[in-house]
Structures are given as C-alpha cells and as structure tokens.
Write a protein that binds this DNA or RNA. Structure first.
Length: 306
DNA sequence: ATCCCAGACAACACGAGTGC
DNA sequence: GCACTCGTGTTGTCTGGGAT
C-alpha cells in the first residue's frame, strides 16, 4: 500500500488509549500500583504500558524515586493533553446517549461546602432531579481544600463554592453574590445602633466557623486592614449552628446573607462598607472533560441564579 | 469477487522473583 | 512497600488458500 507522503505510519495494533489511560491514572494517584488497582490490572501491566509510552514518545514521563513517582514537565504536558481524551473515550457511551437526546442514566458528582449545599444547591438539585430522574447525583460535603483535591483527582465532575484565591489549574465562574452581614441577638447593644464601625465590633465575642476555613481568613484580613481588634470566643461548624448560638445570646457573628431566611430571631446589620460581597460559583479543573450530566447541571445552576 | 477458515504472529495480561 | 524483569498463557489481528 502506498504510504501517505510524510505521514508517519500509525500501527493500529498499538493500543495508545490503554497506555494513556494507565498513564493518566498513575499521574492522578502518584502510584503505579494504585493506578493498577483502579484499572483492575496488575502493577507490571501498568508499568509496562507507561514504559511503552515513554519509549514511543522518546521521553521520560515520571521521575521514579524509590516508592513514589512524580510527573516530569514532559509528563505534565502529556497529562494535560491526554486526560480529556481518555475521559472522553471512557464516557463515550454516556456522551453518545446524551447527544442522541437521551440523558437517562449516569452519575453526577458535585463537591461543595456545607453552606453551598444548604443554601445554594437545593433549587438547582431539585430542578435537575425533576428533569433527569435517572441520573444519580452524589453530593460530596467537603471543605474547600478537600474539594480541590477531589477535582484534581477527578473524583468529582465539578465543585461549587466560594473561592478567595483561584489556583492556576482551575477555573472559577461566579454565579451569585451575597452581602456580608453582622448578626447579633435582638437585644444586643449593637442591634440598636444606626451605623456600625468596625471598631464597635471589637469588644464583643465573635462566633466564627473553624479557623482553617475562608471566613476566618477574610475576617482576619479586614480587621487587620482597618487596624481593629477582634475576639473569637466560639468556633462552630456551619452557619445554622452559628445562627442558633447567636440567637441564644452566646455571641455575635459575621456571615453572608446567603444563610439568612428572615425567620431567625436575630438582628442583622449590613457590613458592606468593610467586607466585600461573597461570590459563590462553579469551580472546574482546567482541561476537564465535562460529562453531559455536568453540562446540564451547570445550565440549570445558571438558569436558577440568572 | 466474496466469504470462511486455519495458521502465524504481535500485543497484552498475569504471577513469581528481584532489587532498591 | 513499591517498581521492574522475566517467563508463560491468552487474545486479537493479519494473511493466504479453498469454497461458493
């Protein structure tokens, strides 16, 4: 058969997809053994697949140092190129069904923090479940850091939440903004004041979410910026808990109005002058192959908050 | 010209053993 | 504990020859 001029011959027998799949899983897990477990293959098989890939591409994809492997810069490049291809192939059946207008099965994984799950997601999830009843939705209740780890390891289709700093390997699309609010018990001295300065808050004990979460960082940053002191007397997980404790007079707190229903027995004082609005949005890994389910869900999220 | 079948061969998978 | 090498069995693909 006449060879196409200048076109390198492609040997159909080479199973490039298997090699790339093994490579991508090894890159994600940082271990050939773990990649083999995920793929239901033996460790030598995955090792050989990667070696074959390295041989054919005439490069080294992993630094093998003792028990751990790490992507080389060339490996990073190949991972960025191949990951969407592998995922696209592995989800071909679902994508094909979706393209034919059928979106009856499959799974949608969403990572989000508790506040997002409680206040942002209920309506989008309700609509999604109504329109696509056959798709199983898995909500992963995680902190921001764990959500990022899940995104990077491809354990979730997308994450939704509030981001202060955006790493290079993800994209963040804000979809909704909420205003910062000081909440106090109804009979609190601050509840009666016309206007509040940051210094007015200093004498009172604050109830804040745990130290490692972004709210605390934000509060710390703003108080430092205005040279004001603050005093945290209680650390509590979750806005519902915080509201309850403010209600019974254990302290005051700074929240965003996303968590306020109007039913609470507390006073609310806007703090927009000092604290920025808090945006909630969609977090995706760059280059991620978006499943049809994820695409539909994002459409619904945008529809709800438009 | 097309289809079917059998033999040859390449690629792949695995377990066992070895080395770091 | 993890990755690599080696030996071996299995699977998939190609090819050539015979039948239709």
């Amino acid at each position: 058969m006449a060879d196409m001029a200048g076109t390198p011959q492609i040997h159909y027998k080479q199973n490039r997809l298997k090699q790339l799949r093994a490579f991508c899983h090894a890159a994600q897990t940082g271990s050939i053994s773990e990649a083999a477990d995920r793929l239901y293959l033996s460790q030598p098989t995955v090792s050989l697949q990667i070696q074959a890939l390295e041989r054919e591409l005439e490069t080294v994809l992993f630094e093998r140092r003792g028990p751990k492997i790490k992507l080389t810069p060339e490996g990073e490049t190949l991972y960025k190129l191949s990951q969407p291809l592998v995922e696209g192939m592995d989800k071909l059946q679902e994508t094909f069904a979706a393209s034919c207008g059928k979106l009856e099965s499959g799974e949608l994984n969403i990572a989000a923090g508790e506040s997002t799950i409680l206040y942002i997601l209920p309506e989008p999830i309700r609509l999604f479940a109504e329109r696509y009843p056959g798709i199983r939705v898995k909500l992963h209740n995680v902190t921001g850091r764990d959500g990022m780890a899940m995104l990077r390891a491809d354990e979730t289709d997308l994450a939704i939440g509030s981001m202060l700093e955006i790493p290079d390997d993800v994209t963040y699309q804000p979809v909704v903004n909420y205003a910062p609010v000081l909440i106090t018990p109804l009979d609190h001295p601050l509840a009666k004041k016309e206007s509040i300065q940051l210094h007015d808050i200093s004498p009172y004990g604050l109830i804040l979410p745990p130290h490692h979460l972004s709210t605390w960082r934000m509060v710390d940053l703003v108080f430092k910026q205005y040279n004001a002191n603050y005093n945290v007397t209680l650390e509590a997980g979750g806005w519902e808990v915080i509201k309850k404790y403010v209600e019974i007079g254990l302290g005051i707190s700074i929240v965003t109005d996303v968590c306020l229903t109007g039913e609470e027995q507390i006073a609310t004082i806007p703090l927009g002058e000092y604290f920025p609005d808090r945006s909630y949005g969609i977090v995706l890994r760059r280059g991620k192959f978006l499943s049809p389910q994820a695409k539909r869900f994002l459409e619904i999220v945008k529809e709800v908050f438009e």
